[in-house]
Write a protein that binds this DNA or RNA. Sequence first.
RNA 1: GCCGGGGUGGCGAAAUAGGUAGACGCACAGGACUUAAAAUCCUGAGUUUCGCAAGAGACGUGCGGGUUCGAUUCCCGCCCUCGGUACCA
Length: 849
Amino acid sequence: MSGYNHKEIEQKWQKRWYESDVYKAYNPDEPGFDKNKKSFYILDMFPYPSGSGLHVGHASGYIGTDIVTRQKRMQGFNVLHPMGWDAFGLPAEQYAIQTNQHPRHVTDVNTANFRRQLKLLALSYDWKREIDTSNPDYYRWTQWIFLQLYKKGLVYRKEMPVWWCEELKTVLANEEVINGRSERGNFPCVRKPLYQWVFKITAYADRLLEDLDGLDWPENVKKMQADWIGRSLGAEINFSVMEHKHSICVFSTRPDTLYGVTALVIAPEHPLVKEITTTACQSKIDAYLSKAMAKSDRERKAEEEITAEFTGAYCEHPLMKGQKVPIYIADYVLADYGTGAVMAVPAHDERDFLFAKKYDLPFKAVIAPKSDGKTLESCFTDDGTLVHSEEFSGLSSAEAREKITKKLEDNHLGKSKIFYKIRDWIFSRQRYWGEPFPLYFDENGEVVMADESDLPITLPDMTDFAPSPDGSSPLARVKEWTSFKHPKTSKTWGHVTHTMPGWAGSCWYYLRFMDPMNTKKAFDEKVVNYWQQVDLYVGGASHAVMHLLYARFWHKVLFDLGLVPTKEPFKKLFNQGMVTAYAYKDKTQRLVPSDEVEQVGQSYRRKSTGEPVEKFISKMAKSLRNVVNPDDVIENKGCDVLRTYEMFMGPLGDEKPWADEGISGCEKFLRKVWNLFIDDNDQIRGDKVCAPKAHDKSHYSLHKCLKRINDSFNNFNFNTSIAGMMEALNEIQDQQIDLTKEQSEFFLKMLFPFAPHISSELWERLGNKDWIDFAGWPILEEDKLVKNDFELVLQVNGKIRKKVEANVGLTDEAAKQMALEQLNEFIAGKEIVRVIYVQNKIVNVVVKG
RNA sequence: GCCGGGGUGGCGAAAUAGGUAGACGCACAGGACUUAAAAUCCUGAGUUUCGCAAGAGACGUGCGGGUUCGAUUCCCGCCCUCGGUACCA
């Protein structure tokens, strides 16, 4: 039996690739480094090596970047394309506890499986640069970078209310809690005061926001980061409390509405609540407070009705002397945003409106809509023209904001202020499987930085990793960890029992990939200056805020320290779409595993009972039994077929459902390519693919195809590349086009990034001894795209009536003339209004009657 | 609620400086080869109406309007869907 044998060919080439240094990225000064080559750094978001392995969805992003990588290599770039493991974190530890294993062991088993799977996909990583964030050789430098941030004063320790997840027994960052539930696992979380290590990311808020502008990132990701940082410009305004020496500071983005204030509302947690509450109101306030405190944040947010309580106290309006403004507490005002106090302007803010309506407070409209100057009955929240605002009446909202703020400043009653929504980053976790902090507590309980020579501070060996119910870390149970004799001081010191969160390792891994073997430094300056930054970063949209924000923060600090040459780590970002799969549910909306369903005509039913089920699209999940493992596809169809099909399904950025039936099209395509080159006796078809003279139509077919492929590298819609190659192949076969050797190579070069094994094999069989990897990317020749004739479409009133062959050089006059003759039967006896000719495309005759 | 992405055949999808809608593929149907099946190859097909047929006509890119000789593409107003986010002052 001859024919295309994917197993044999793929094994042969993978062995060659992995045993050679064909994928090696060269650092400056390294033997083999070519200073004439430009650098290109293309990075996948490295995976968290879970126990279930990769499915075809993970593979799609990696295949996409590999295609770009292979093309860049052909184009003569020195390409850095590395892979590693984001190996610290909760899931490995949870799984280790459940199965009574060491997380180290679990991680090693999982990474081995991931490595095996990735190699089967023929992803052209420089495997010598593989890194594992949980390896002390790596986290030594994570600790080192932490120390640099610590020295800059960007780390502090504080008792603060933090998100605590009872189920996970750990603190979570604000970014990790969604609607009061943990991002991982969806467990309920509560606010709890605890000592934490915290990063001052807020100190970089403005730069993290401003520098988004220059990034070649998807607009929605930039917007999500901007929203998360949440910059708002406004004013801090002081209201002095009557009969007290205190004043209450509010933050408002609408100082232009200051004359419309009819109440002041402070959060129940506001520090002045106790002091200012009058005796008469004491009991009611106490009742409100105890009710509010009993509610979780979640319950508070779920509350639809606004509730409030009067404190009995008043403050004075800052610009209207003697004007009394009542002070309320209400839990719609959040203690941890702004100053924890707002000025209520019922006429111009929706929540204030609802609040005032319920508690019967006066409305005072001070902004008139620009157009008609009428004052609205309900609230008007847009900008307008000021009324009833003393000397500011008549100004526009924008002018008034400036001038009112200025007046407040002049009178020391307030000032212009920018508030950020972003909070400092809580950086400690009460778990075992993470980087230990490079800090000690000395004999007096003071924090001492570790010496660089102490690094890495490695995790102590232990067997029970379960978190403690009191919220302390498992490391707190290790005696030699919490108290040991420090060799330099001979005093009894202790380690920090918290560990770093899973994000730590991924904050700088892209830098370590540049210089992964360095034992002296995290990364060498010269090497970083060479690679600069990640040119193309590809991964899922789920990391839009957390990972990408944290990594940008660390990078900016490293930039300030002069350790990296760029302000931003990732120049271009691309989000690959999810690969979904079909799933089924029955009448009661219960999920039915895919392998229990059969298709009958257009509908689906359960095999066992015959009851009808409904098909729908969902994420791949074990419970739905619709997870497609790339290993199986590779075993049955081959890696090239899998790669081709994953790209053929649709644009890389789109979500698209996996369908097993679809694979056969790509399988047939590659087999046809094989059969074009190789005959039944396993010999190269010299007459077909090494013809002495090029066929007339061959240049056009090949260059048209190349143009489409080149375009697809800009848009990541490789589906059109593959369609283009299928089309070219169909043309070659249908029109019995013979290719010269050069043209055959041209075709194989286009195919290579997508299906590297078969192209390498055919490249070799054409008699080439060198790697196709470096054979150069085909050059598009525009003149080859020019055709002599075309199909001229003839329309009457925009409707197609005829199509005729015409020469490309056809003049305007000749085209119209031809159209009128050809369309005679359609236009006879009618008045011709005008005739439009679109070059080399269409003639449209407009008639009346 | 607000902010993004998206609605095109039975299915995955092509095509937008406005110019032949459905490329490419799946599934389907018919045929060839075969004792037969698989594989392979060829042919067909958006829907619909008329016709024995060749063929001819109408309608078609979520819905309703508009601009234009001509709209999947531009404008206005909606509907649905998938993400993100939400007492943020």
